[in-house]
Design a protein around this nucleic acid. Structure first.
Lengths: 359, 359
DNA sequence: CTGAAAGCGCTTACAG
DNA sequence: CTGAAAGCGCTTACAG
């Protein structure tokens, strides 16, 4: 690929024949310079290699390639897209990009799609159904080849509509209906959190469960409660509270739990930032996290280990989820049959459950 | 704008005449349904309104609009782009999208460009010059109308090359050369940090200054040192150390400062996450932040106020910077003369400098 | 092995 | 007020 300042003709100020309005070389530019027809240039440049038919004679092909390289030719994606009805574009919808979990997933998506020659649009929806519709419409208006939703509602109602439009898509982070998704094995993650707290002797537990429409919170909570149940430890309904996925959501939820009077000895929070908010409230209540109350978060964001009281958490492979979701979409675009993937989480014990026992 | 599931013909399974290969209505679809020529439809749909010439008779215009609405027509951007050589696309380069500062700025850019009917591509460069070239090339291959760089090196060398390519661009967050930029008034921000620490009586100061190629770190440090100088307080060179902009960078830098032996009573860190890393090292050294050592960060990320020891910091208008940068680029695309903008920061005092004095 | 033609879905002067 | 034509930069069967 030609690169900025790599000494191709583009930067030398030479006027190219049959350049586009911006002065960029076109297929025609290369064709004239090579003394062949544009269709020959197109065939040569699009030929992927391999045995069998050749797009042109060896010498012609080499000459064309050399000239294309020299003038810094790159095909006009509007022309290609118009002709082939393939845009090599992917639309990605997330609740919020400032959420490091989603930003990390998106980085994985972006990197992986780039290796296929695809570019991505991202947009925030704030988990608002109206915004989801609006943003989906914007993205479809751009004629993306496919979409990746990181903001699926577990009921999948909106996704049914999108599927009805014929747009291939996959889900990431959250599952919904029977649509192909790449998620963390959230049920397992919840179980790991429970087993950790139970193994430390905690029997008085609470869960800050996230939004009721997100499979992440639902599955993590279900896994946690199932493991508690299997161990014969009950968690009252009043001790399982929904919350937003941010720090403030954790503050609110923990306050509600404390308002009950009794303080649980162990709290599972389905998101690290939510856990940080919860820890703040515990601290403000004069409780020492890791000694008076054990807290387990979810995701293992980079900050978790840098906190004054290191946060015990369930590490989810966020970047990997993005990469895999991108691959899954690419396979869908190639009309392959695809199956959902559940990536394995790992418990990372730190001071918020171990107290002074330094890890 | 037609919306998913809004009851237009698109979702009803009706075959549209002259639809594109994906079954979407084209200009021709609308033209046939309205019984007029495609050029008339184009004129009507692109007419912005206003007095003077009309694109068609009132009744024709209304009929066309009604039909376009009903079939859910949205113009094929590849065709429009090919014809007009305008893509309504913007490329955005950032060091890393998982950095909440950049993610917040990008959200501002995305929102603002969307109001102009533009879409954006973002890509990470990790502040790596080779990646900057590669990503710029990818973005230009998409035929964006303009670019926004959030990862400028202060010397501006690479940007000179980009300018030579004729692509309009603006900078955000970091300034460079004489290129139009939207930044925080970082010099002022540094001064605010210094005045705060000086007013609390601190005379033994240190600075964790960020990367040497980023104007943010450079200007914040310069403003800080200038204010110290004006107050007759010297800061030795050995107490001004460069660092990466993340938590680990703060750990390394603070460790280097402490390795000197003497512990400063006040530390200015040019980035909140770097400050969090620095606070971790201080804590590990048995020092209490806010009592033994005062720490001031920069940006006021949402977490700053939720930390166990609330972080005193200089709030920069991150989202607003993104919005303004987008507007600035739009004006450049309209060939207007534009000037750089410096947005005003505000000091937010918290426990990391005030200790027990609750704010 | 290579050329010529048609056409993707638009916009925009130009006629009438 | 409206139509007809040309053409943006490609790709792809089809000839030869």
């Amino acid at each position: 690929m030609a690169v900025v300042g790599d000494g191709t003709d583009r930067t030398s100020g030479v006027e190219l024949p049959f350049a586009d309005p911006a002065g960029r070389p076109t297929l025609r530019t290369v064709a004239e310079l090579a003394g062949v027809h544009v269709s020959t240039v197109s065939r040569v440049l699009n030929h992927v290699g391999g045995p069998g038919v050749r797009p042109a004679s060896r010498t012609t092909s080499e000459r064309i390639r050399r000239i294309a390289e020299r003038v810094g030719y790159s095909p006009n994606p509007h022309a290609t897209g118009l002709r082939t009805s393939r845009s090599h574009l992917v639309g990605v919808l997330v609740p919020r990009l400032v959420d490091i979990v989603l930003a990390t997933i998106y980085e994985g998506i972006e990197e992986a799609t780039a290796t296929y020659g695809f570019s991505t649009f991202v947009a925030n929806t704030g988990d608002d159904p109206a915004a989801q519709r609006r943003r989906t419409e914007m993205v479809l208006a751009r004629r993306v080849d496919g979409m990746i939703f990181g903001d699926a509602y577990v009921d999948g109602g909106f996704l049914d509509e999108v599927a009805g439009r014929g747009v291939p898509f996959v889900l990431v982070s959250r599952r919904a209906g029977a649509y192909p998704s790449v998620t963390c094995d959230d049920v397992l993650g919840g179980r790991l959190a429970a087993e950790h707290l139970l193994s430390l002797g905690h029997r008085d537990l609470a869960v800050i469960a996230g939004e009721p429409y997100a499979s992440t919170g639902i599955d993590r909570t279900a896994g946690f409660l199932a493991a508690c149940d299997a161990a014969g430890v009950g968690v009252p309904d009043s001790r399982v509270v929904h919350s937003r996925f941010d720090t403030e959501g954790g503050r609110e939820a923990m306050s509600r739990i404390l308002a009950d009077g009794a303080v649980p000895t162990g709290v599972f929070v389905v998101n690290d930032f939510t856990a940080i908010g919860a820890m703040g409230v515990l601290r403000d209540a004069g409780l020492v996290v890791g000694r008076d109350v054990a807290v387990v978060g979810f995701n293992d964001v980079p900050l978790a280990g840098s906190l004054p009281v290191g946060l015990t958490t369930v590490r989810s492979p966020m970047h990997e989820m993005g990469v895999r979701a991108a691959h899954l979409l690419m396979r869908r675009l190639a009309s392959e049959e695809v199956a959902s993937e559940r990536l394995v989480p790992v418990l990372v014990p730190r001071a918020s459950t171990l107290g002074d026992r330094r890890v």
